[in-house]
Structure formats: C-alpha cells, structure tokens
Amino acid sequence: MEVRELCGIIRDVGRSCEDGSVIVEFGRLFERYVTISNKVVGVLLRARRQGLVRFQGEMLWQGRDDQVVITLLP
C-alpha cells in the first residue's frame, strides 16, 4: 500500500519523460511525502527492490541527497 501511494505521489509531483518514466528530485519528494509519512526512505528502498523506481546510492539523506533524481519506471 505505501509503495503504491509513493508511486502516485511521484507521478503527481514529478516530470514525465518521453519513455514513460517520471522523474523527481529526492528533496521535492521528501517535502511532499513527509507530510504523509516519515518513512519515505524505507518505502523508496522497498519500491527499488520491487523494480518500480531507480536512483543512485544505497541510502538517501535529507539535505545531502536533495538533488538525487528518483525515476519511477514505466
């Protein structure tokens, strides 16, 4: 449920690409998602394990990784 909700938020706040993917910077996603849940990083990691999103690095940290691009895969 949380992973599905996260993907919906990425679609809402992100930018669509020609290949059908949607991209959003971690900082923007964190600002939006934190009002819903403080578990955004854990949910992102689960979504990546399920093959739904892609991003660089093993762990994302608010502030340090705000510019990291999260890609919601088509």
Rank of each mutant, 00 (worst) to 15 (best):
M1C: 02
E2W: 11
E2L: 11
E2C: 00
R4M: 08
R4E: 14
E5Y: 10
E5D: 10
E5C: 01
E5A: 11
G8M: 07
I9P: 01
I9W: 04
I9Y: 01
I10M: 05
I10V: 14
R11D: 13
R11E: 15
D12G: 03
D12S: 10
D12Y: 09
D12F: 10
V13L: 08
V13D: 02
V13Y: 08
G14V: 02
S16N: 05
S16C: 06
C17R: 14
C17L: 13
E18W: 05
E18S: 09
E18F: 06
E18M: 04
D19V: 07
G20T: 05
G20M: 08
S21L: 03
S21P: 06
S21C: 03
S21H: 01
V22T: 15
V22G: 01
V24A: 05
E25P: 06
R28N: 08
R28E: 13
R28T: 15
F30Q: 09
F30R: 10
E31V: 06
E31T: 11
R32M: 10
R32K: 13
Y33D: 00
Y33A: 09
V34T: 08
T35R: 15
T35Y: 06
I36M: 12
S37I: 05
S37M: 04
N38H: 12
N38R: 15
V41R: 10
V41E: 13
V41Q: 05
V43W: 01
V43K: 02
L44W: 04
L44F: 07
L45R: 14
L45E: 14
L45D: 05
L45Q: 14
R46K: 15
A47S: 11
R48C: 07
R48W: 08
R48P: 10
R49I: 02
Q50D: 12
L52T: 02
L52C: 03
R54C: 10
R54M: 09
G57H: 09
G57V: 09
E58L: 11
E58T: 12
E58R: 12
M59N: 11
L60G: 07
W61C: 06
Q62N: 09
G63M: 07
R64H: 10
D65I: 08
D65W: 07
D65S: 14
D66W: 08
D66C: 11
Q67S: 14
Q67F: 06
V68T: 15
V68H: 02
I70G: 00
I70S: 02
T71M: 12
L72V: 08
L72Y: 01
L72N: 00
L73G: 00
L73P: 03
P74Q: 07
